[in-house]
Design a binder for these strands. Structure first.
Lengths: 216, 216
DNA sequence: GTCTATATGAGGATAGAC
DNA sequence: GTCTATCCTCATATAGAC
């Protein structure tokens, strides 16, 4: 607000950006992910960058502006990827499979942003004003895409008809994103393996053999 | 530390407790869940209780002591329930089914505690000292119980052999707990319906018909 | 673009009266 | 068991020199 010339960029997709600024955003994102948005101080961000906290305000209006940029970048990339898949998928099962792969595929490049979304979503949404209202908008768009495919699959006779599409979507979404809590790059399993593992369970289930209900 | 006579209780299971104290813990838990542990101030907790912030320190040493009590109560209840099921379950599928039901069953009575665990786990664990080390201990115990059942199921020929037990456990666990984010009592679906829905997908999958792999 | 220095406020916690 | 009053620390953000 105070230095329109240097801080007017509000989306990370904004052209011709300062690399310095982007670098600062990345440093901040790691701290936000590790310690939480609120617990991260502007002093820590500045320390990480080797400058003093006051100097940060040459680049950003506020701490909120930084986290805003972290989340926007992620959401823009995610929705773009989903849209691309949906244009080319032939049937619902293929579309869902690809969407699951996209989800797990963002775990590594957007690990920090996803962590922040998970942990600080409630807090950011509760802030006065509607600054983070776009979070809900983006979530709604993504939900529509998933639910539509699930319903198509049911209509096509590919998926069980007795499942609630919205509930099914939520469980898939949660299972994917929440993996950022424990996923570490370079570990025993990479995100591709995670995706294929989950796709197997999701479509075909854990059980072997008969598919009759088996309730206690 | 300062008033051993009134603040020595460290576990919520501690006998003959002050109902006043328990009530304060409940109020605090709701605030922690709604706004996050760090964003909740002792003044807000006191406001909610109709007293002043200083008065809280008659009941608790610190804000951390309060959240400690919230989490302990939940974890003690949860592990006790799991142990009870595992004593009586005949086969792995029955055991897992019951464990899923237990998980969803805690969503309502322990909604606040589960929310805090999800959102503030990282932060609480990062605090100096080992005050919240028991969180990891409890998690490990729970993991052992689940993984054991999954392995049994595979050995018995009930479950697919090509799935990673630990990874499967994590995905189940995450799917259950993360539902606190959107689950609201009194909504379209109750926790029993959630559990049965998930049990269906987990064991038998989304797809109808052939169980051959179907990758793009 | 970074620094020095500082305003301004809020947080957790404490001491002692009632 | 609660209140009044307050300490001390640390937070975000600002102003202006360099």
């Amino acid at each position: 607000m105070r230095r329109p010339g240097t801080t007017k960029r509000t989306t990370a997709a904004g052209s011709a950006a300062s690399e310095r600024r982007d670098h600062l955003v990345k440093l901040a994102a790691e701290l936000f992910a590790r310690k939480g948005f609120q617990a991260t101080t502007v002093r820590q961000i500045a320390d990480e960058a080797g400058i003093l906290s006051g100097s940060l305000y040459h680049h950003f209006d506020s701490k909120e502006t930084i986290v805003d940029e972290v989340l926007r970048t992620f959401l823009e990339d995610l929705t773009a990827r989903y849209r691309a898949v949906l244009e080319s998928a032939d049937d619902a099962r293929t579309a869902l499979t690809e969407m699951v792969r996209i989800g797990f595929g963002t775990l590594e490049p957007h690990r920090a942003a996803i962590t922040v979304m998970q942990n600080d979503w409630n807090y950011l949404r509760s802030l006065p004003g509607d600054r983070f209202g776009y979070l809900v908008k983006a979530e709604d768009e993504v939900e529509r895409m998933w639910v539509e495919q699930i319903k198509h699959g049911q209509a096509e006779g590919l998926f069980r008809d007795d499942l609630d599409p919205k509930l099914t979507y939520r469980m898939i979404r949660d299972t994917i994103w929440v993996a950022v809590r424990w996923f570490r790059p370079g570990g025993r399993l990479n995100t591709t393996a995670l995706a294929e593992h989950y796709i197997t369970v999701l479509f075909d289930g854990l059980a072997i053999g008969d598919r009759t209900s088996h309730n206690a």
